[in-house]
Design a protein around this nucleic acid. Structure first.
Lengths: 250, 250
DNA sequence: GATCATAGTCGTCTGCCTGACGATAAACAC
DNA sequence: GTGTTTATCGTCAGGCAGACGACTATGATC
């Protein structure tokens, strides 16, 4: 058989699913929407939807992200085009188990989005409601009310969280969780929330301010955390952290 | 519109494409097949094919890999089930530009395979011939005879090479390029070929033998490289290298 | 068989980075 | 003012990497 005979290929649906992460109240939170229809009706799921016929995968992910959160995605590498409401968006992995959707063959291209803390989420079209919750809520569903995520979304979320946890080690990705201007302490609390550990403020300060191009001071200061006023920084041009930030053992 | 209405989704074809890498004669080589039909007839391309209706993505990639090379893929994390002809296989990324295939909407889930040096490749079903060539041959197509890869395969190959280059820094992945038993020098030549740099033999030896669980001596020695006989090792259980192997600055 | 070339292996030294932690500074609450 | 909180600077010891010397064990060559 010719592998490109248009009449011979099996029919697939292609969707994008989003792992949208943010840091709220010192914990790493993910966005979930409640499913309004079968299967898994009433269960929580990752936001997502079909890729349209004329749409790139990244475009589809950015569109879904905007529909669900109002965030404007920007490609990694380029500085945020719309300061304040931009989000980091990157492809995560693709999930295509034949049985992952009971109705039909669906291949889902999962994307990972990282955003600063946001106002209350707005529900998307196919969801009765949406909410932020700590990732453990979905990954260790002890909570009777929440339950496990629909489809294979728990696996997708776990993969997205793991990607975020490892990528902030060697890149400036953690700044995607911060507003345009932020203090060293705020950035440290991002690392602490994502990794679930406590970091030494003095060593962290030395590391991030000593890495050329990582942080650029804006000149301003803030006292919004209480205590002594802290310098404000913006993310510098450096995207790779070399040597990396070391994640403490366990 | 309901995002899961089966009558509403646009038709997609889903393929897997393979970036198969090996180290031959001190250089990093990729497998390419010559296209036997339009479009890009006669041009070199990455091996690949359609995902079947009842097939997982990883299964499809493993099947294509076996068809093209005879290699038996094994999941990362588990030791090679078939010593000598096993290959590391992992998902790379998914490419879905609407115009990437001029005939129809094709989403390709690219996979990365790493294999020890192999005998001459055998041609797959849809290819007139297949060959190994240094990755630069395809990425910097100065060679008139070879030309650029078909479709977006140059980008896929570049992404696969970059994945391999970065992943051997912090994992034991480089052993996937080696036969079951290998010497420290052979492993070092893998790093040198993949990174295109020269490494200090003494510091490299100290690093790999000093990392617990990375290498386990088999007791044997070999002299196949000439010079003093070298100890033979197998890959140990450790899959992560902490601290990582440092890639020298360009 | 002596010499040479090649590769492998063990050590040494120096500089950089990290982790642990003391000390000081600048705000706010009372 | 005193206490609390957070930010920032400094010091010190240990670990690791880069540079490189030294020695070992083989095959090739004369």
């Amino acid at each position: 058989m010719s592998p490109y005979d248009p009449s011979a290929f099996p029919p697939f649906a292609v969707t994008v699913d989003l792992v949208v992460l943010t840091v709220r109240r010192h914990s790493l939170c993910a966005l979930a929407v409640r499913r309004g229809e079968a299967p898994f009706q009433g269960r929580w799921a990752l936001p997502g939807g079909f890729v349209r016929a004329d749409e790139d995968l990244a475009m589809a992910a950015a569109r879904e992200l905007e529909e669900e959160t109002g965030l404007c995605a920007h490609d990694p590498g380029t500085p945020a085009p719309a300061p304040g409401n931009g989000a980091h968006l990157e492809q995560l992995a693709t999930y295509g188990d034949p049985k992952r959707d009971p109705r039909m063959r669906v291949v889902s291209v999962a994307h990972l989005a990282l955003a600063p803390d946001l106002p209350a989420p707005k529900a998307g079209g196919d969801a009765h409601s949406a909410r932020w919750a700590p990732v453990e809520t979905f990954l260790e569903p002890e909570d009777e009310e929440t339950g496990a995520l629909a489809f294979d979304h728990a696996q997708i979320l776990a993969d997205g969280v793991e990607r975020a946890r490892s990528k902030i080690e060697y890149s400036s990705l953690a700044t995607a969780f911060c507003p345009t201007e932020f203090t060293v302490g705020e950035l440290r609390r991002v690392y602490e929330a994502v990794w679930g550990v406590a970091l030494d403020p003095r060593n962290f300060h030395r590391k991030v301010t000593g890495t050329p191009g990582f942080l650029v001071p804006t000149g301003g200061t803030t006292t919004r955390q209480g205590g002594r006023p802290a310098q404000l920084f913006r993310a510098g041009g450096a995207t790779l952290l070399n040597p990396p930030m070391l994640r403490p053992e366990v």
